[in-house]
Design a protein around this nucleic acid. Sequence first.
RNA 1: GGGCCAUUAGCUCAGUUGGCAGAGCACCUGACUUUUAAUCAGGGUGUCCCAGGUUCGAGCCCUGGAUGGCUCACCA
Length: 488
Amino acid sequence: MSDETINELILRRHEKLKEFRDKGMDPYGEKYPAAHQAAEILNDFEALDGKEVSISGRLMTKRGHGKAGFANIQDDTGQIQVYARLDDLGKDNYECYQLLDIGDIIGVQGSVFKTRKGEVTVAIKDFRLLSKALRPLPEKWHGLKDVDLRYRQRYMDLIVNPEVKKVFILRSKIIQAMRDYLNERDFLEVETPMMHTVTGGADARPFITHHNTLDIDLYLRIATELHLKRLLVGGYNKIYELGKVFRNEGISTRHNPEFTSLEVYQANTDYFDMMSLTEEMIHKISRQIFGSSSITYQGEEMDLTPPWPRLTMLEAVKKYADVDFSTIITDEDSREVAQKMNLEIDKKATRGEIINLIFEEYVEKHLGQPIFILDYPIEVSPLAKRKKEDPGFTYRFEAFMACSEIANAFTELIDPVDQKERFTKQAEKRAAGDEEAHMMDEDFVTALEYGMPPAGGLGIGIDRLIMLFTDSPSIRDVLLFPTMRPRD
RNA sequence: GGGCCAUUAGCUCAGUUGGCAGAGCACCUGACUUUUAAUCAGGGUGUCCCAGGUUCGAGCCCUGGAUGGCUCACCA
């Protein structure tokens, strides 16, 4: 906002800045020893009635009555009314009070009382200007609605829209609860590199950056998976990483180029154990933070009580798309089915790819209540262990809620020879133009060759989960500073 | 990237058939010492997103562009 649109409102505030200085009050003062907070005074009125308190916060409203006036001060805990009287403040201080603008941050010291109408109020004995606001705040009643401005100038959104502030407090609490859950169970939080020489762990196009001294291009990570598994090779048995990953793809209400993922790995477990962990952790967070086993998202109530229903992908496709792949065995027959369903497919599409496509087209939209979908085709699961009894599928599940994938997990592929073959197939796809296919990660295969213990792994899209918990329709509502195209 | 919609005062929004640019809040002046969307009297503060075009005349119609929202595609 460097384009100084010096309009009358801003100009007037600059004048007041000078007036405060002329009156000997520093408009950008020092730290204020506030001993109380707004919510505390409101809650403990009985104890504080008639007592001296001090608070600091932002002036949000002002109601003048000549030789007295009311105002509301907003601090981190909420708003409280203050009362200024000429008789209490004296002529000079009262003139200063009258000079205050909505938006200014002030420190107030005074005594607590209740007005005739019953509102807990602080009668000001002394106040100090702590920070003069030079720009006017949005309107008090409608707040700031323009979503563009809300995202670009989130600080303003947070000042005037209290429910927005709540969302991010909840976000913090949910993430904290996850950490607590895992830490209590002796998982170790680790940090792995965000800049990779080879990307992997997900189907996605990466961001590319450059290291000057090494003179090499680096990729911002698209997942934490391959490094975390290296740590299982190294001997850690229970680890997790919670952090940002970056995918160079479209932006939508469900996608932001950078987002937060949680990945958890545990030796000597399989995907059934990861299912238990997923449903138990999410249920427990809901109980702990919202005091309920169910949440309501966009009008639909969802029961999080474990165990969640489980369907294999084949069962789900049969149930919702009415296609029974137990009798469709070859790739040719599968392609024929896909054509009959008017699905756009590649000439070389395999049975597994078609099953996955039908699942995405016909099944996902039905998965409103929490559910685990098990056993994904091997073609779309290059890092998951092959099913012993059905080698075209893997021990992989995804958890769905509100028709949205919120977790992805598998019994990890630990066979280095199989892994190398899968990478080779992915590399072929990549060479054929599929920019989202996985890259060959030689070092990861080498790590597996030293022996990785059998393990289950789990990934959760934290932002999507927080959308559900906070009933937010857009991922931007749970990101403090969502990615925006720059102005001009 | 495609489609649809939006963009007017600091904020929230009206704006008729193409004919002087509007309201509420905020702000400014005055009154008011327990108000609370304070009230009362007065004041309109503007690059109508940008650039062209049509027209005697454009906030409005046309073309192109910018940004955002929704949606489809892609993904998580």
